[in-house]
Write a protein that binds this DNA or RNA. Structure first.
Length: 536
RNA sequence: GCCCUCGUAGCUCAGUGGAUAGAGCAUCGGUCUCCUAAACCGUGUGCGCAGGUUCGAUUCCUGCCGGGGGCACCA
């Protein structure tokens, strides 16, 4: 896809050479200045090349400007040296008309795509909630985040497998089964068991003679799968811990580690030398009672994932951050490359209702389920709310605000833009207005600042998507969508389209501008996994 | 005690090694005989504190203070 910066970069390189700066390893950044009065694009060439050139940056900038002025790159109407030595470009609106044509040509399927991933395989594990209960609002964050991250990676040319690991054996399961069985016979669950209301509800559903463990796991998994489906999240691969163990993966990986001489015995237990691979201590693989710790099957699973993927990503909650060094160490001990494993640790979610914080606990009463959020506000709002914020900060979801049918709800701003676009389509149809083919439309009539602002935002989507992918930060796409919505609302307010007093050529160009906006919004929403209503 | 993470406007949050740090909400005041006013326009003494690296730090590093999370032969 053509990029206006290519021409600017070529021009800058030539000017730099003309100025006698040769061979300097210059990181040539061309960015949008924060202050629009500094032009459309700005480069720091002179600042970074000054040292190699042994000249003051401002002076170097002046010379570059003089040389560029003599032979300006495409669309450039003025080049200026500014500040400590920036080179600023002023461009004709034609560069934005080109952007509009590109967006339309690419369409929803192709705009802002890249092949940065080059078809590399990546496994992304997320949610992986224990099959001991429904998904709570905290899990919802990882469901929304993990799935959108996958969409981002796919958009950038990775081959993604969405993975869910089911811890269906071990102590938690024992407790869950015991709790279920106890409720079934009308007794209290064990002290350290599961006391949530759902346990009693599920126990009431349980058929006579059913095995509480097996039935309970299935019940929990079905509940979680329903919730995930309602959130528009679909996993490619569920891996059951007990099946993994049953097929001998645990013994195999233990043998593999043993053959690499990184396992030793101490106090009757078998330890892995994770301390030698960057962890703060060695870890137990097999306890002195011969029972494996949870860690061993986990290693087996990660070994397997690493063997069938070029990159392995785990999405984890903050409470699991301590787990990262040991898994990283175990994978290193198994000979996997350090860069091929990524653990993304996000902060927790808290809920607020009626002005008070609701703690997310598996203990009864105040647990807020994803399914409740879904019931209250629907899947789109639920996902969008999760994705509006970086996972690096603890998120407080105010249920009253999120469920409010008012402007206070941050989701509506975005949805309203979408609804307006579709409303325009309905209006146009009702009035018999049709878009002429793009190559018959004169886009150069788009010179209103509101129109150009929309195009400027649209021009930024490919960069935004690429950056969001690299940063593993889908919320950046959400932020971009809000920017686009804002630009669109302002355009809408100032630039009528269907009104009788609008010239036909301008109307046509604006209709295409709206179509490009629709495409940009659709691309962003697809990455977020959100669909927007066609009317509010 | 050790480790991770966050600290930006009244609130909820974006943001960048650069030139005057943004958006929504809230406040106050404007804008519909006109494609959706859930919109638009105006209204703001904010990067926790102190050092360091850099031509330039809110951004990177160190320390401190404050919030959250974690430190098992539990998972």
């Amino acid at each position: 896809m053509p990029d206006v910066r290519d021409g600017l970069r070529d021009g800058l390189r030539a000017a730099l050479e003309g100025a006698g700066v040769v061979g300097a390893p210059v990181e040539l950044a061309i960015e949008r200045p924060r202050d629009p009065s500094h032009g459309e694009w700005s480069s720091n060439v002179a600042l970074v090349a000054a040292k190699a050139a042994r000249r003051p940056p401002r002076e170097l900038a002046e010379e570059i400007v003089a040389r560029l002025g003599a032979e300006p790159p495409p669309h450039v109407v003025a080049v200026e040296a500014a500040g400590p030595g920036f080179v600023n470009f002023r461009l004709a609106p034609s560069w934005l008309h080109e952007v509009l044509a590109e967006v339309i040509a690419a369409g929803v399927d192709a705009y802002a795509r890249s092949d940065a991933g080059a078809g590399r395989t990546v496994s992304v594990e997320f949610v992986s909630a224990n099959p001991t209960g429904p998904l709570h609002a905290g899990h919802g964050r990882w469901a929304a985040y993990g799935d959108s991250l996958c969409r981002l990676l796919e958009h950038c040319g990775y081959r993604v497998t969405r993975e869910f690991y089911v811890n269906d054996r071990g102590r938690q399961i024992d407790l869950f089964a015991a709790s279920l069985a106890a409720r079934r016979r009308g007794a209290e669950p064990p002290e350290d068991g599961y006391h949530g209301e759902y346990v009693a509800e599920w126990a009431a559903e349980m058929p006579d003679g059913a095995d509480a463990r097996q039935w309970g796991i299935e019940r929990a998994r079905r509940d979680q799968a329903d919730t995930l489906a309602a959130m528009n999240v679909a996993f490619d691969l569920y891996t059951s811990e007990s099946e993994l163990v049953a097929r001998g993966a645990m013994g195999e990986v233990l043998h593999e580690l043993g053959s690499r001489a990184v396992v030793y015995e101490h106090d009757g237990a078998q330890w892995l030398r994770t301390g030698e691979f960057g962890d703060s201590a060695d870890r137990v693989l097999v306890k002195s009672d011969s029972e494996p710790t949870y860690f061993l099957p986990d290693i087996a699973y990660h070994h397997e994932k690493s063997s069938r993927n070029e990159l392995v990503i785990d999405v984890l909650g903050a409470d699991h951050h301590g787990y990262v060094p040991r898994m990283r160490a175990a994978l290193a001990a198994l000979g996997h490359g350090d860069e091929d494993y990524e653990a993304l640790v996000g902060q927790n979610v808290t809920l607020r209702r009626g002005g008070v914080e609701v703690r997310l606990s598996k203990r009864a009463g105040n647990m807020v389920l994803v399914s409740e959020l879904l019931d209250e506000v629907g899947p789109d709002v639920t996902r969008l709310v999760y994705l509006l914020q970086s996972i690096d900060t603890t998120q407080t979801i105010d249920i009253d605000v999120v469920s409010a049918q008012s402007a206070e709800n941050p989701v509506y701003y975005l949805q309203y833009a979408h609804a307006r676009i579709h409303s325009l389509g309905r209006q146009a149809e009702a009035r018999g207005v049709q878009r002429a083919p793009l190559d018959e439309v004169d886009l150069t009539v788009l010179v209103h600042e509101r129109e150009l602002d929309v195009l400027r935002v649209l021009a930024g989507l490919p960069d935004t998507v690429a950056a969001a992918m690299r940063a593993r930060a889908p919320h950046q796409v959400a932020a971009w969508a809000r920017e686009l919505a804002a630009a669109f609302h302002r355009f809408w307010h100032d630039c009528p389209i269907l009104r009788d007093d609008v010239r036909e050529d301008l109307r046509q160009a604006r209709l295409w501008l709206v179509e490009a906006t629709r495409i940009g919004l659709a691309v962003a929403l697809a990455i977020l996994g959100v669909s927007a209503p066609e009317r509010l």
